[in-house]
Amino acid sequence: MKENFIPEPAVIREIITQNEQIRTFRLELQDKTKAFTFLPGQFLMLSLPHCGEAAISISSSPTALPLIDLSIRKAGKLTAAIHEMKPGAQVGIRGPFGKPFPVDSFSGRDLLFVAGGIGLAPLKGVVDYCLFQQELEEDSVLSMTLLYGSRTPSDIGFQETIKNWQEQGVDCRLTVDIADEKWQGDVGLVTDLLDDCTITEKTTALVCGPPIMIRFVIARLSSMGCTDEAIITTLERHMKCGMGICGHCHLDDKLVCVDGPVFTLAQLKTMDVMELG
């Protein structure tokens, strides 16, 4: 049976508008008997009628299954098309693909999340997953801090989520590049927020955002004493198959779709990646 490239039908149950550019699409597999699970950091290949496929990271935690969130910024043809869709519409998914964040190694760690823009999407699942573990008091993390940078106050996504996280004890600090008259918070790059952070040997930093942001945040974390193994990021690359065959995300002797997209800085340093400049 030639089944590798056949997507599984899924239904959009809910759409949450994060800002003008980003919406979260809450999906559920049409066939509820189908076994499906994943870990934070993994991604799906999303199919839309007449649009083909795109690689999208899962922004929810597996603890929220059977619902699966995809937070999508309007960037190309497919992403623009899903922004026009309504709840009840049908899409196709293949996956999950890729290596997840090493969530099993987070117990007893202080997690420092550094995100820019849509970069919060793949990290969101990790925060939700760790909060769930904390509630169970099982292998839980010591603390969670989020540094989140957006271009302007109206670009800040996931506001509802961030409010909930704060109530659950996640230390969330927001900054914008350009303020408006109503903005009371920090203004400046997300790296500036690192000034008030302490890095210890218990810190694990999870970084995701535009390549230029990743580069400067990593450099700053390293200078603050964070080790290469304790800095984790996730790369975005053009992908077609998602399963290590098509070659598009080839990175030296690695393939981002199977060896990543989650990499430690120690791993990245062995490769020629633009995120490190």
Partner: peptide, 22 residues
């Protein structure tokens, strides 16, 4: 063996998922 995957629209109700050399 690198390839691309693309959908070819036949009409409003159907299409093909194609694999092509890249």
């Amino acid at each position: 063996t690198c390839f691309s995957l693309d959908d070819m629209v036949l009409d409003d109700t159907q299409g093909l998922r194609l694999r092509s050399w890249d």
